[in-house]
Simulated assay, not measured.
Amino acid sequence: MTAPTPVVPSVYLSAEEVLRGGLPDRISMEPIVEGTPFATERVLLDSVDGFFAVWECGPGVYPRVKDRRGSFMYILSGAGTITDQEGTVHQLTADTVLLLPFGWVGTWTITETIRKVYLHSTPVAPLREDVQPSVFLDAETVLRGEWPEIVPMDPIVSGARTANELTVFDGPDGLAAMWECEPGIYPRVKDHHGSFMYIISGAGTITDQDGTVHELTAGSALGLPYGWVGTWNITETIRKFYVHTFPALGA
């Protein structure tokens, strides 16, 4: 007899938990040049799909080298800069998107406590050997930009047959994009990758295979691990930042 396929649940935090909820885990910020020695975070998922968490850190200067994984993040609040090794500087504010691929080298300078939702991914071969630049989107582009790429939404039960998106990064760390879709009902199976996302605007629900329902609103965070089966029901056009990872290879 064939064993039943295990039900893979989604992971979810409401907007209140993401934006203002407690962060129980304390983590070292070493190495530091100056500033807050510890950050705090709340982990949503730690698996072969990726490490998905909400994180907060006070002011300071923190050199970093991405020699084990890539990082994808959405800044929720605060201010600072990220400086690549070659000198490029990006201003970090609420609603900016930042990607630090495997191979990135540079420095965080936090001037006002930063809170973010982020994903660490395991890169897959072949890995780049040279130093990689950061990838950045400013808040104006994130909140009001137009996404030129048209992607099919099949299969659908009802609603729009296409969505719009903007690919931000596509490499061994994963694929990151901005995405927007009008109301509709969309069954989905995560049989190629895990998906992690932050809802920027809009409303709807996500229903797991076992019937668990989560309310999607601006500020909520959602992870759909490899093997997840369920249904999106978008009731108000949703705009989100998402990352696809490659767990089968990354493992």
Rank of each mutant, 00 (worst) to 15 (best):
P187D: 12
S195W: 09
I238F: 01
I206T: 02
V229D: 10
S220F: 06
Y226Q: 04
T167Y: 10
S220L: 07
D170S: 13
G211P: 09
P187H: 10
E180D: 15
T162Q: 13
E165A: 11
V168G: 02
W228T: 05
G194C: 01
D170E: 15
A160C: 07
H214A: 05
K190F: 11
T212H: 10
G204N: 12
A176W: 08
I206R: 00
S158R: 15
E180R: 14
Y198W: 12
T162A: 08
D170Q: 13
D191I: 06
P225I: 08
G184F: 06
E165I: 07
G227P: 04
I234Q: 01
D208W: 02
E236T: 12
R188H: 09
D170K: 10
A163Q: 03
Y186R: 10
K190D: 01
L166F: 14
G171S: 04
D191V: 00
T235W: 05
C181Y: 08
T237K: 15
T231D: 05
T237S: 15
I200L: 15
F196E: 02
Y186I: 13
G219F: 05
A203I: 09
L166M: 15
L216I: 09
I234H: 02
G204D: 04
S201M: 04
T167P: 06
E180H: 09
S201T: 13
F196Y: 15
Y186Q: 11
F196S: 03
T162L: 01
N233F: 00
F169G: 01
E236P: 00
M178Y: 08
A163R: 08
T205P: 02
T217N: 08
T162E: 15
K240A: 06
F169E: 07
M178F: 13
K190Y: 08
T235M: 03
G202R: 05
E180S: 10
G211S: 03
G202C: 11
Y186C: 06
P225S: 13
P225E: 10
E215R: 11
C181K: 14
G227Y: 02
T162D: 12
I200M: 12
I199W: 00
P225T: 13
T212G: 02
Q209R: 10
Q209E: 15
L175S: 07
T237F: 11
P172I: 01
L166V: 03
T231S: 02
I185S: 14
M178N: 04
A177T: 12
I185E: 15
E215C: 00
E180C: 11
V168W: 00
H193A: 13
